[in-house]
């Protein structure tokens, strides 16, 4: 069976839930896909923070639609993870007890409206770069979820850049607000691609099994190359003194993010870790009566239907 698995990977065919797979492949995927799902759900919190304070009705409608999309994306990913033989309840418990991780970016606060622009432009931009690659990931349900997500996600980045463009073209204070959001979100966004290849413990297997097709550093480089001209066009400055075009590699040279900070945030000590997890657990607890009522209602209807037969 192992040979069959390897042969499928070699032919670039998807591994499907009923296929035999090495336990370590299954475990790697459960970790990665559930982490991805949790990130979608936790990602609703920093943006939800601004729904009531969006500066116009148009902005409010767009933000609600975007947050709703993130909920849907979480759902696609949870069911993809469940196809690997783990229940939704277990997945949520791992999130709520802190056993499972989610993207460290969501542990930063959204202090101003410009942050909502920065999240769409930078954070969703970085996520899309990763997700475009994952459309060709080797596990079928994960790949199919990614295709759907990429299709829906393309408006997210545009709406964020639009917010940033408007602020950058506004009053002096508005432009400063946009620059401040870029300053704060730039480094955490670069960290989203994960540790440098040399230090990434999960990378080697992920590439070998074609779960990932490109390395953390490759994706990070592509993101920088794509984003720098977008910032320049609207008169904002990337907060990196070492940023410079390198003609030989046809890409930008740039500084390393502060990996100590990254590890700190991952291990629960970011600015909002406790707040995010607290809000998620509270939402789950507050929803308990709804789930219990739904079960009771479904049971009652089943019994009634049985009585008529």
């Amino acid at each position: 069976m192992d040979a069959n698995f390897e042969a499928k990977l070699a032919r670039n065919e998807n591994i499907e839930p009923k296929d035999w797979m090495p336990d370590i492949y299954r475990k790697h995927l459960i970790r990665q896909v559930s982490q991805h799902a949790h990130s979608e759900i936790i990602g609703m919190l920093p943006e939800g923070n601004w729904i009531t304070r969006a500066p116009s009705l148009r902005a409010k409608m767009v933000l609600i639609a975007k947050v709703q999309d993130e909920g849907g994306h979480g759902l696609y990913l949870y069911t993809a993870a469940e196809s690997l033989n783990i229940s939704r309840e277990e997945l949520l418990e791992q999130l709520h007890t802190g056993k499972a991780k989610y993207s460290s970016i969501f542990n930063y606060p959204t202090l101003t409206w410009a942050d909502i622009g920065a999240i769409g432009w930078l954070v969703d931009g970085a996520a899309i770069m990763n997700q475009v690659m994952l459309q060709r990931t080797s596990y079928g349900p994960y790949a199919r979820a990614m295709v759907r997500i990429c299709k829906e996600e393309s408006f997210h980045q545009r709406q964020g850049y639009e917010i940033t463009c408007k602020l950058a073209a506004g009053t002096k204070e508005q432009k400063e607000m946009a620059q401040d959001a870029l300053n704060r979100f730039w480094w955490p966004t670069l960290m989203m691609f994960g540790p440098p290849d040399a230090a990434s413990s999960n990378s080697e297997n992920a590439i070998k099994w074609k779960i990932k097709r490109e390395s953390n550093d490759q994706l990070r480089q592509r993101f920088v190359n794509q984003t720098v001209p977008q910032a320049e066009l609207i008169g904002l400055t990337i907060p990196d003194k070492n940023l410079e075009w390198n003609e030989a590699k046809k890409g930008y040279d740039f500084s390393d993010p502060d990996w100590k900070e990254f590890n700190n945030v991952i291990h629960g000590n970011g600015p909002c870790n406790r707040e995010r997890l607290g809000a998620r657990v509270k939402a789950h607890e507050n929803g308990r009566w709804v789930r219990e009522a739904a079960i009771a209602y479904a049971e009652k209807r089943k019994q009634k239907a049985a009585a008529y037969q």
């Binding site: 069911t79 469940e82 939704r88 309840e89 308990r288 789930r291 219990e292 739904a294 079960i295 479904a298 049971e299």
Partner: peptide
């Protein structure tokens, strides 16, 4: 059914 279930698939 589990009390904290999300329902069937």
């Amino acid at each position: 059914m589990n009390k904290d279930s999300q329902g069937a698939l």
